[in-house]
Design a binder for these strands. Structure first.
Length: 373
RNA sequence: GGAGGGGUAGCGAAGAGGCUAAACGCGGCUGACUGUAAAUCAGCUCCCAACGGGUUCGGCAGUUCGAAUCUGCCCCCCUCCA
């Protein structure tokens, strides 16, 4: 019996407060997971990760497979020891790279031929390989190898892809041997209700440890995005964790929680930070702007992060302008802590049965553009 | 005083008769970013009532159908020699 267990603590509408035991690590959901693709949450070390109160982080199978390589990960004793991080780690399977590296790969029934973005060499990844590599990486939660399809995708394409993703999910499940590692199935199906339903139901029959919603936030509008979520959520069992992959916009997170999503990850906070954009309770701001040159006030009075506690906007503005590495660390710490606080607030609201009020309060303050981004 | 070299958009720096409002870099201004090929990428950056028009390449005067590019004078700057 795996020491991996989801316990539903409380519901407020469809929003769920839960407790997830990940092989001894315990965490409360909903939870936001910072992304650390190459065994590092870019610019942060283990102390920073602890300070922002991240409960779980991600790694990436494709990237770690290419570099440093499966053997290094295995000999290092797994990703936790390798990066000196004592907390749960979830790995994406490489399925997202089928989407993001679309112009340099080829899909077949057997698997995906990737042409390495590092040196151009051709490498083949089958679902079994993805699982084996994730076992070598030693993550606590592994993902099935899927195809994240683009948006828009026509029905015939989406259907064929879902069928294949399901066959890959079964192959991965059969290949999986690591006892202290959970395995999630990923629901695809694009924007099509019947395909989402079919994919979810077939995966549930296979009895995974948790279920992921994939193929969202790939360029679709908000309405379509939430529709895809709705089509999927109703088929996922109450007693397993649900993870929407790759969402990090404030409204997306709030909408997902409202629909019963327990976990989500995103590169958005760290990428925005590296590009000089900060998420604040009032909306996004670009700290590069000249208006902050003489602004000696803290970034966000309400924030408790190391960046907001110790530095002024003028200083952060200067660091970014001067292209100083410290800017990347400080701004990443802030954006990550911002989203983690957002989710902490959501947990509290759910336990007090006032989730919708909480969501409304946040969204009223936060400025979005006309597309809702 | 003598001998060379040079003055180009905010800065640096190409260009040596028409294809040049003038490459490129920096700086500046916008915008993008959602399971990370991203400390990245895209656009703008002489002026304007702008799919067109108006002024530019130290200054003035010329040559030419046409000049940042050629000629003369003047003004500055740099290097070397006195």
């Amino acid at each position: 019996m795996k020491n991996f267990k989801y316990e539903l603590l409380h519901k407020d509408g469809n929003a769920r407060l839960g407790k997830l035991n990940v092989f001894g690590y315990e965490l409360i959901t909903p939870v936001f997971m910072p992304v650390g693709t190459q065994a590092t949450v870019k610019f942060l070390d283990y102390r920073d990760i602890k300070d922002i109160k991240a409960d779980i982080i991600l790694g990436n199978t494709y990237h770690l497979w290419l570099r440093p390589g499966e053997d290094v990960m295995r000999q290092a004793g797994g990703i936790h020891k390798f990066m000196n991080y004592d907390g749960p780690v979830l790995t994406d399977s490489g399925g997202f790279q089928v989407f993001s590296l679309a112009e340099r790969r080829n899909i077949s029934e057997e698997g995906v031929m990737f042409q390495s973005h590092l040196d151009g060499s051709r490498l083949f990844m089958r679902p079994e390989d993805s699982i084996r590599i994730q076992e070598a990486i030693g993550s606590d939660i592994a993902m099935s190898f899927d195809e994240c399809i683009p948006y828009p995708a026509d029905y015939a394409y989406a259907r064929n892809s879902v069928e294949r993703t399901l066959r890959w999910a079964k192959r991965g499940l059969d290949a999986h041997t690591k006892e202290d590692q959970a395995l999630f199935g990923i629901v695809q199906g694009g924007e099509y209700e019947d395909l989402r339903a079919y994919c979810a139901q077939e995966l549930v029959k296979m009895n995974f440890d948790g279920y992921s919603i994939g193929g969202t936030s790939v360029g679709e509008d908000k309405k379509t995005h939430y529709k895809m979520l709705d089509y999927t959520m109703k088929y996922l069992p109450e007693d397993k964790p649900r993870y929407e992959m790759g969402i990090g916009a404030v409204n997306d997170i709030l909408e997902a929680i409202e629909r019963g999503v327990d976990m989500f990850d995103c590169v958005l906070p760290t990428r925005l930070a590296r590009h000089g954009t900060l998420m604040t309770s009032q909306g996004r701001i670009s700290i590069k702007k000249a208006i902050y040159k003489y602004d000696f006030s803290p970034l966000d009075e309400e924030c408790d992060c190391e960046c907001c506690k110790h530095y002024t906007k003028a200083y952060l503005h200067h660091l970014v302008r001067a292209n100083e590495g410290l800017a990347n660390r400080l701004l990443s710490i802030h954006n990550l802590r911002f989203l983690i606080r957002l989710v902490e607030g959501a947990r509290e609201a759910i336990s007090n049965d006032r989730y919708l009020e909480y969501k409304k309060e946040i969204l009223q303050k936060y400025k979005f553009d006309e597309r809702g981004f």
